[in-house]
Nucleic acid binder design. Structure first.
Lengths: 352, 352
DNA sequence: GTTAGCATTCTATCTTAATGAGTGCTAAAA
DNA sequence: TTTTAGCACTCATTAAGATAGAATGCTAAC
């Protein structure tokens, strides 16, 4: 955690914990009386008030208006998530359910992840997100040029997750079916088990050797490979309509930004990846009101956990839950962790 | 148009036209004074009032509350669209722009349609929708089994639009690479240029002949083909966030239904297809507060036009605009028509 | 058939008052 | 030194009443 927090004593921690917890469940500003009751520590509201004023001064809490109850600030949430909350374990039944749901159908990786997002949304009543495995964790299983018109061909790349990447390519001149066929053979020979991001370099390397013998083939190959579009990161965002149930999203402007994320998730993906990459060993990260370059999602909170495939050191992608900042992080943390783990296992077992 | 309308005289038509038109632009209930002014016919508000009362009695108009101005009912909108509005032609510049945007990149059919939806949303400031060509208008260009694990294979079908359909298949027993290869050859031989919906029957027919010679191949083929999932209709819905600009969608419940449509567009697709199919010769249809089985979209209006590919008699799919009932139908009708036409041309030229 | 006039209806907006939740501060109690 | 009771004060929320304005429906006159 890179945020530097002010130092607070035990009692302040207890009270901060209580305020955040109560606010998360009630969605109403929290008053000293309520905290005093909940704590049951024989402390009078007046004492609590003093502490709360201190916490406000340090930036953990804020007031909606003079003489209203307190509400956690972003800093408050972050402290809560980092030091105060007690992660609630999943019950065996819940674990079993997740496992069942995810494994009930054998599918390509993108189908698995879409289902994962949907499942997370269903269980949490928030929006669920699930990123596809990064390109560099997949290798090519099959590469195929399919003629569509004389000068148009579709280039399909099937990766080791069963995902298909399509590009549409227009050639300078018509190519015979036979030529395409030998090209297909050739491409599959040299590119099998090559990572997608290395296509071009590997192909070039190979072509050097064969240049003389298969001149025409070589030229064509390079031409085609330069036209492949760089693969874009992809993320599923499911169950967004759950967000409408939250009181903070009753005004539509805020949900609007979510639609923006759905249309172009790339900035958010980047933020999440960076956030996970910052941690020493990749694990769950919680973003409170993250900043993206495009949409304003400062009113949202995100819990995300990376998943790994096989024994790769680097995570392949992440999954998570997106909701209001005022989210039951305690409950959802274990859910996201377990699900990420499960997704990793399923993808490992299935496609390697 | 299957709706039976009450018969109204010329003056009633003029006034109904005015009310709908004014309401579309102002989003406020329309009063007799406003209509009188706009018409400039030297008719007093009182006279207009009488006519409006008649129109209300016949079901074309309604009041929000006693002594408020009038608002069009669904019937009013329908009559307006069917008989009163004057479709505004597109300018040459607009036509050129649409053409440019759609053709600026050579792409597979799904990319073209996604861009179409996006473009319609951009121009209209509403949501744009675009359905993929129906399965039965496409034929198979390539069919390919790609091994993923011993018993898992991915089945890819590339159709004549450059679209790829994927299924994930688990076999009862491992199959050798050679076996798969000959299966691939075999499938491409018998299924080339066959429509996707006929895969099974054509394959079965062919297998009868060859049954003895290639027994094992035949059995495997049938097994695999039975596991293909029936292709689902698919529709892009772009620019939904534009809907937030409309005053009628300031309360989030209504936009929520749109998210429902995005997650499962099938019922809406069905309604639109039926609506287009009902017309003698397939052409633009306008739905006012259509009824679907799942989501309540009775507050929305849709303008949709079918597109045809080559000289096929039946339309291949449709594109359109989704917005509030209070939409400038006059302006958008030509836009949707022209764009549909253009999409048809592009898909015809590209992929046949 | 058309319209002026008028009472009527309903919305929207503003003011005012009352209520209540919650705070901050001070001075006394522990 | 810490805790707390007490009290004045702030602000949001709600309800009620008053006023203005946009339309209407209806009647009687043109």
């Amino acid at each position: 955690m890179n945020t530097q927090f002010p130092v607070i004593d035990e009692r302040e921690k207890t009270i901060l914990e209580a305020v955040v917890h109560i606010y998360i469940t009630t969605a109403e500003p929290v008053g000293s009386r309520t905290v005093a009751k909940r704590l049951g520590l024989n402390l009078s509201p007046a004492t609590i008030r003093n502490v709360m004023a201190d916490l406000e001064e340090m930036g953990f809490l804020a007031q909606v208006h003079t003489s209203s109850g307190r509400v956690p600030t972003d800093l408050g949430y972050k402290y809560y998530v980092a030091y105060l909350m007690k992660v609630q374990e999943l019950s065996l039944a819940e674990r079993e359910r997740i496992k069942q749901e995810l494994m009930k159908k054998i599918d390509t990786a993108d189908q698995v992840l879409k289902r994962t997002g949907y499942l997370l949304a269903l269980i949490s009543h928030q929006a669920g997100l699930a990123e596809l495995p990064a390109e560099n964790t997949a290798v090519i299983r099959r590469i195929e040029l399919v003629p569509l018109l004389e000068r148009h061909v579709a280039l399909l790349i099937v990766d080791s997750f069963g995902c298909v990447h399509t590009s549409s390519i227009v050639l300078d001149e018509a190519v015979s079916t036979q030529m395409l066929e030998s090209l297909n053979h050739f491409l599959n020979d040299i590119l099998f088990n090559v990572s997608i991001e290395n296509i071009y370099s590997v192909a070039k390397e190979n072509l050097k050797k064969n240049f003389d013998e298969q001149r025409k083939l070589a030229e064509l190959t390079l031409k085609i490979l330069t036209r492949i579009e760089p693969p874009t990161s992809q993320m599923f965002l499911e169950g967004t309509n759950n967000l409408f149930d939250q009181p903070e999203f009753q005004e539509p402007t805020k949900v609007r930004n979510i639609l923006g994320i759905m249309e172009n998730p790339t900035p958010l993906i980047k933020v999440l990846r960076d956030s996970i990459a910052k941690l020493e060993n990749p694990q769950r990260t919680v973003l409170i009101g993250p900043e993206t370059t495009t949409e304003d999602i400062s009113e949202f909170g995100i819990i995300a956990s990376p998943y790994k495939i096989d024994d790769q050191k680097e995570p392949a992608g992440f999954i998570g839950i997106l909701g209001p900042k005022r989210m039951p992080y305690e409950q959802f943390s274990a859910l996201v962790d377990y699900t990420a783990n499960m997704v990793g296992k399923i993808l490992s077992r299935l496609w390697r």
